[in-house]
Design a protein around this nucleic acid. Structure first.
Lengths: 338, 338
DNA sequence: ATGAAAGCGCTAACAT
DNA sequence: ATGTTAGCGCTTTCAT
């Protein structure tokens, strides 16, 4: 049996399709009496508007896509959990894409591909793309970039102040008396800008405290996963002069690092203090609980969605802006011990 | 500037729209020479097919929706991570919806709402819906249900054999010499069928070993989160006769339970052994690592997608089936100690 | 406030 | 193998 269409409703109600459309969308004014007739017909026929047809007619899909490198990384999962309701509240469905941090995949998404028609705008947290790649995107695609990149002025960017946050984290380690502090997660290459900002904060905190930076204590990792943290920590502990504290560039890294330290019989934080970044739920339940930098994920989500809507609506080109969400230092057992 | 359409391409190539469509979709046979002409025109104009128009014309959206209660629950995140590539491989985009386990929200999704047009089929992991609710769904919606429910015969169901898996988990605890075993996560009410299957396995293992079940050691929880595990464990440890092992209905529950035990100075597994369920990544890095039941998530994803495609394609009604994915017992430190 | 009618860009049945 | 053409179901301009 065929789906009932707007035309069927119009016929039954004895009005034109135009009027039914008006009623359904609440557009123009409709007399109470005709509205009642139409609504009765809708109910009787069990009519539901065909979104596909509407999309074609309006040229909009009512969907936005959120692109993250990994869905099963808690930070991104939690961020999505915040973005979805924010988008839905303003009438948008959320499509989700994971890229595995693959540059080519990310590039295809922001390029002028056929999938473009599926979404009205995109929020992307790029990993493999360089600044340059980002500038090569489909110029008509409303775009908001998440994470630690500086915009080239043609798109918007939402993030926390990573340098400030990292400085706070390391200053906290200094404040509890640590002097040989390591950093795990640096990525000294073009696509590692996010990591580099944290390294900058690491240096800034040392400088502010008048402490020298031991460059050999800055450990690079390919990703921000537990395994990276575990491996890096092992390398640090193998040294003749291991650090007494570690600033990890994500909570997952911290989790892996702690795993290694405990496995070697060390006490955290007594022997080695650890602080992470992201404030994922795990960190509140692990043993010990993980001190961290907590980005305001709801604020990030809201800022990103609001800004994207603005871009979708705006016809004239809008200059790109940097939007900063708040963050907070949350000391827990892995630095305080209690 | 207007997007170039299929018609523009046809004109430039000097062929009919029909032929361009054939080339784009690889449908019928096209002469090599005309194909070349068309492809040249496509390249020259930078043509990309309008998916919205195609959707309307075909009546299919090329999207499936996956509905989970919580996106930031690692188990679901990992499952999605498996489903998305499986669906993409067969040409489907994946929409994601989180329901917060809300019965009404879940009900709207499987009902005959307007969003129906946005997806060709649905994979849902219900939490709040009763068997009865599921039967009230839009009969035209191709549906695959994940998790521990028995189908009413009108839809498909993919899961592991929970009773068997739970039996294995508890038998493992018995095998390592534990005799007072608790269970955390029971939900003795209509929507708690998933939990009840695990409780059934808990009993079966006792019976197989000739051990009595201490009913007071079966602790109910509203959800399967860390906080639930932490709270339940506290209650167990407050008893005059605490258990020497705990079967937790999820790894998150186990994580919370271990957190409480360690916090009270107990050793895991020496003083109390803990086994979880789901095999989420956390469990492989926590301290101690968590013994668990590992459902084959890739198999679940593949089975679900394959079956959904079958339903989408099939015009005649197909009887609902029960599909079982493999699972595996993975002993780790929280029961073995090493 | 409502009606008539022309698209939106593609697919696919029908024709050659 | 390719062309012609009638929709898919809705929105929306132009009338009235």
């Amino acid at each position: 049996m065929r789906e009932t269409t707007l035309r069927d409703v119009a016929e039954l109600a004895g009005v034109s399709p135009r009027t039914v459309s008006n009623v359904v969308n609440g557009y123009a004014k409709v007399t109470d009496s005709t509205r009642a007739k139409v609504e009765a017909a809708i109910a009787e026929l069990g009519y539901r508007p065909n979104v596909l047809a509407r999309n074609l007619a309006t040229g909009r899909s009512g969907q936005i896509v959120v692109v993250v490198p990994y869905l099963d990384t808690p930070y991104f999962a939690e961020l999505l959990q915040a973005i979805i309701p924010a988008a839905r509240k303003v009438g948008y469905n959320v499509l989700i894409d994971q890229t595995d941090g693959d540059r080519q995949h990310e590039g295809e998404l922001i390029g002028r591909g056929s999938r473009r028609f599926l979404f009205d705008g995109m929020i992307i947290s790029p990993l493999g793309l360089s600044q340059n790649d980002l500038s090569q995107r489909d110029p008509d695609l409303p775009l908001v970039v998440l994470g630690e990149r500086v915009s080239d002025g043609t798109f918007d960017h939402v993030g926390i102040d990573d340098v400030a946050a990292s400085t706070e984290a390391v200053s906290h380690l200094i404040a509890i008396g640590r002097r040989r502090i390591a950093a795990i997660g640096d990525q000294p290459y073009p696509t590692g800008e996010a990591a580099q900002l944290r390294t900058r904060g690491f240096r800034a905190a040392h400088e502010a405290a008048g402490l020298p930076v031991d460059e050999s204590l800055i450990i690079g990792t390919a990703r921000f996963n537990r395994i990276d943290g575990a491996t890096a920590m092992a390398a640090l502990l193998d040294r003749a002069d291991p650090p007494d504290a570690v600033f990890c560039y994500s909570d997952l890294v911290a989790s892996g690092a702690i795993h290694t330290a405990l496995g070697r019989g060390l006490r955290v934080p007594e022997d080695i203090a650890v602080i992470g970044y992201d404030d994922i739920e795990d960190g509140r339940y692990s043993q010990p609980t993980i001190s961290t930098i907590s980005p305001d994920k709801k604020a990030i989500a809201q800022l990103a969605v609001d800004r994207l809507l603005l871009r979708i609506a705006g016809h004239a080109p809008i200059p790109g802006v940097e939007l900063r969400a708040p963050h907070e230092l949350i000391p827990r057992q892995s630095t305080l011990g209690y």
